[in-house]
């Protein structure tokens, strides 16, 4: 497997709290290949953010890595000394955050900020400036030379997010992590960002780990999808497989809930009743059991393992096991 860029291998992460250990991630496994766009979809509290901060090792002080590895180009990031990790962040792995209004320093010009992040480069100031302008141009900011002198408040939300993307791509990273980059934007800007990411991905040939709870965006942008629920991967596979032939009840119902699917005006929209289980006090068996309309006795007794159903399509549900369904 020479083309695997990032491999998350049975990663389990807890938060130590006064109430006991909060099991934020449990045995997460998936990989990202070179130049591929992988979407992570899941609702609030499913562990998306913990996963990103674990990959970057920007975790809160009460975080405990219980087991597993985060291998980037074959090297386990969890074992790297902090100094080496710093070299990696922003150069080999970079990130675009959710809120474009708070990503930039409000008191420095965009040009200054784009120079600052090139601090590792030995190039002259003029060369760095030219590089910054070139990147602004690449994300579709008109008149980039002049706009370098402007401050964040002089740009619209969509432009600020594009600038954040330009900054993240400046070092031509192998992996770009995009944490809900379109959530704060409206529909037309959302589309702009998606299309821009697609273009840039081809231009720079970087892999993208795209986190979102917006299924429409995931369907449009990603090659593969990882579905998370309450700190675990419940399903992963090719985007078409996931959307057209979901093998986990949570995935199926999540897709059903998206009002984009329902073309006629509906009196009652589908929902998933119930709440996400308490991660500090996990129930036994399948974590989705309480909200699942297809739960069986076995679901209460044993945790369903994430098993491969066909090439690349994994799901963690007893329904996919013949002996259980009988």
């Amino acid at each position: 497997m020479t083309d695997t860029l990032l491999e998350i291998d049975r990663l389990s992460v807890d938060y130590e709290t006064a109430r006991g250990d909060l099991k934020a991630l449990r045995e997460i496994s998936f990989d990202v290949r070179k130049g591929e766009i992988v979407g992570i979809v899941g609702e609030s509290g499913c562990g998306k953010s913990t996963l990103i901060s674990s990959i970057l090792r920007l975790t809160a002080p009460n975080t405990r890595f219980r087991q597993g590895a985060v291998r980037f180009k074959g090297q386990d990031l969890l074992q790297l000394p902090e100094r080496k990790m710093r070299d990696l962040r922003g150069s080999d792995i970079s990130i675009v955050f959710q809120d474009p209004m708070q990503t930039h320093n409000p008191v420095l010009s965009i040009g200054q900020q784009m120079l600052d992040i090139q601090h590792r480069s030995k190039a002259s100031k003029a060369e760095k400036r030219a590089r910054a302008a070139q990147m602004l141009g690449a994300v579709g900011i008109p008149d980039p030379e002049a706009r370098l002198a402007q401050f964040p408040h002089e740009f619209s939300g969509g432009m600020r997010q594009r600038i954040a993307i330009a900054m993240a791509l400046m070092s031509e990273p192998d992996l770009l992590i995009a944490d809900e980059p379109t959530t704060a934007l409206d529909a037309t800007l959302e589309v702009q960002i998606i299309e821009r990411l697609q273009e840039l991905q081809q231009q720079f040939d970087c892999a993208i780990l795209f986190i979102s709870h917006h299924l429409g965006v995931i369907a449009e942008l990603c090659d593969r999808v990882v579905v998370m629920y309450a700190g675990a991967v419940v399903e992963s596979g090719e985007v078409r497989e996931i959307f057209h032939d979901p093998k986990h009840p949570y995935t199926r119902r999540l897709i059903d809930c998206d009002p984009g699917h329902i073309k006629e005006r509906a009196r009652v929209l589908p929902t998933i009743p119930g709440e996400v289980p308490d991660l500090a006090n996990l129930p036994g068996g399948c974590i989705f059991r309480d909200r699942c309309d297809q739960a069986m006795p076995r679901c209460a007794a044993e945790v369903p393992p994430l098993t491969q159903l066909k090439d690349g399509h994994h799901a963690a549900c007893w329904l996919n096991h013949k002996e259980a369904a009988e």
Partner: peptide
Amino acid sequence: RCLLSANPEPDPDARLERIALKGEP
């Protein structure tokens, strides 16, 4: 028309006839 066409569909095979808006507001 542009706004409606910018609505991402939760279907990877959806054929979108997207009409791009030029420039910034």
